[in-house]
Design a protein around this nucleic acid. Structure first.
Length: 307
DNA sequence: ATGCACCGACAATACAGCCG
DNA sequence: CGGCTGTATTGTCGGTGCAT
C-alpha cells in the first residue's frame, strides 16, 4: 500500500509544478503527516523532492529531475544536443551553457563529438568566417527588427546600396541566403550572403510584414548530359544512383531540373568533360557561354600562343 | 498576521512471527 | 488455534519556522 502511494505521489509530482501536502493527502486518502513521511521516504530514495514554505507553498520535484527521468530519453537528449551544436557552429549562436546543461543530464558519460559542422558551405575558410559575421549581423537585425544597410553585387556585377528588412536566413545548395524586404526595390528580395560586400546594422526599426514567398512556380524539364568517364566520383555529389548510367566510354546522366534556375555555372564546373544532349535550349545557352569564353581567350593579346 | 511546510511525541491499528 | 510480542504504518496534536 505504501509503495503504491509513493508511486502515485511521484506521478502527481511529475505532472505538476507544486502540490500542497493537503492536496496530496486528500487525493490519496491519508493524513498530511503520512504524506510528509512518504516525502521523506522518497527523499531517502534519492529522489530530489523540494518544498516551498509559506503561502502557495507545497511539494515539488527538481526541474532537472523531471527533464532527466521523465521527458526525454538519453537518445532524445542527444538529438537536441546535436541540433544545438549545429546552431552553435553554423549560426554562431552562443548556447554553450545550454549544451553543457543537457550533456550533464545524460546518463552516458561518453562525449559526443562525432559531428562537425565546421565548414557547412562550399566556400574557402576565410569566406566562411566573413559569412558567419554577416549571419551574426543579420540575426541581430531580425531579433531586434532593425533594418540593415548593405552594398550588394548582383549576379551580373551591378553594384547597389540598399536598405533592407531581413526576415529569414536559409542555407541552400551550400550557400547562405537572406530573405528581406528591400526599400530600394519596394519588394521582397533574396540576397546571397557572399555577394553582400558591406553590411551595417541601422538603428531604424521595421514593422514585420507578411512574408512573400519569392519562388517562381517550378518548371521541370528532363535534362540529359554526357560526362567523361573520369567524372564519376564528382557526379555522386549531385546525382542519384538511378540518374547515373555508366556506359563504355562515358556516363549518361538524366534528371529533372527546374529550368527557372541557371544550370550554366554548374556545367562550367566540368569544363570540356561534359556535353549537353537535351534540352536543345540548354545546349544552345551552354554553347553561347562557351563561345563567350573562347572569344575572350582569342582577344587576349598576351596569350599569343593560343591558336 | 496568516497560511503552510515541517517535525516530534504519542496513540491506535494492522499484521507477521513465535510459542504453548 | 489462540495469545503474546515486535514491527510497520498511520493519525492526532501541538508546536516551530518560513514566506507572503
Amino acid at each position: 500500500m505504501k509503495i503504491e502511494r509513493l508511486l502515485s505521489i511521484l506521478v502527481i509530482l511529475l505532472n505538476k509544478e507544486i502540490v500542497s501536502a493537503e492536496e496530496l493527502a486528500n487525493k490519496l486518502e491519508v493524513s498530511k503527516r503520512t504524506i510528509y513521511r512518504d516525502i521523506e521516504s522518497l527523499a531517502m530514495s534519492r529522489i530530489p523532492v523540494v518544498t516551498i514554505h509559506g503561502r502557495h507553498g507545497g511539494v515539488g520535484l527538481m526541474p532537472s529531475y523531471k527533464m532527466d527521468k521523465y521527458l526525454f530519453s538519453d537518445e532524445e537528449k542527444l538529438q537536441i544536443i546535436e541540433a544545438l551544436k549545429m546552431q552553435n557552429n553554423m549560426m554562431q549562436i552562443d548556447n554553450q551553457i545550454l549544451i553543457e546543461k543537457l550533456e550533464n543530464l545524460r546518463e552516458s558519460e561518453e562525449s559526443y563529438r562525432n559531428f562537425s559542422f565546421y565548414s557547412p558551405t562550399i566556400h574557402r575558410e576565410e569566406i566562411e568566417i566573413e559569412t558567419k559575421e554577416k549571419l551574426k549581423i543579420s540575426r541581430e537585425a531580425m531579433a531586434h527588427h532593425k533594418k540593415m544597410k548593405i552594398k550588394y553585387i548582383s549576379f551580373t556585377g551591378e553594384v547597389t546600396n540598399r536598405v533592407i528588412s531581413p526576415y529569414r536566413i536559409s542555407l541552400k545548395d551550400g550557400n547562405w541566403y537572406l530573405d528581406a524586404y528591400c526599400d530600394h526595390r519596394k519588394d521582397n528580395r533574396i540576397f546571397k550572403l557572399t555577394r553582400i560586400r558591406e553590411c551595417i546594422l541601422l538603428e531604424e526599426g521595421y514593422f514585420t510584414t507578411k512574408e512573400n514567398e519569392l519562388s517562381l512556380a517550378a518548371n521541370y524539364e528532363v535534362v540529359e548530359l554526357l560526362f567523361h568517364r573520369d567524372q564519376l566520383g564528382k557526379l555522386y555529389d549531385f546525382f542519384l544512383e538511378e540518374e547515373i548510367e555508366i556506359q563504355k566510354n562515358d556516363i549518361r546522366v538524366t534528371f529533372e531540373y527546374d529550368c527557372n534556375k541557371n544550370l550554366i555555372p554548374f556545367l562550367l564546373m566540368f569544363s570540356s568533360s561534359v556535353e549537353v544532349i537535351k534540352p536543345k535550349e540548354l545546349k544552345e545557352k551552354y554553347y553561347k557561354e562557351l563561345n563567350k569564353i573562347y572569344k575572350k581567350i582569342k582577344d587576349d593579346k598576351q596569350l599569343s600562343y593560343i591558336p
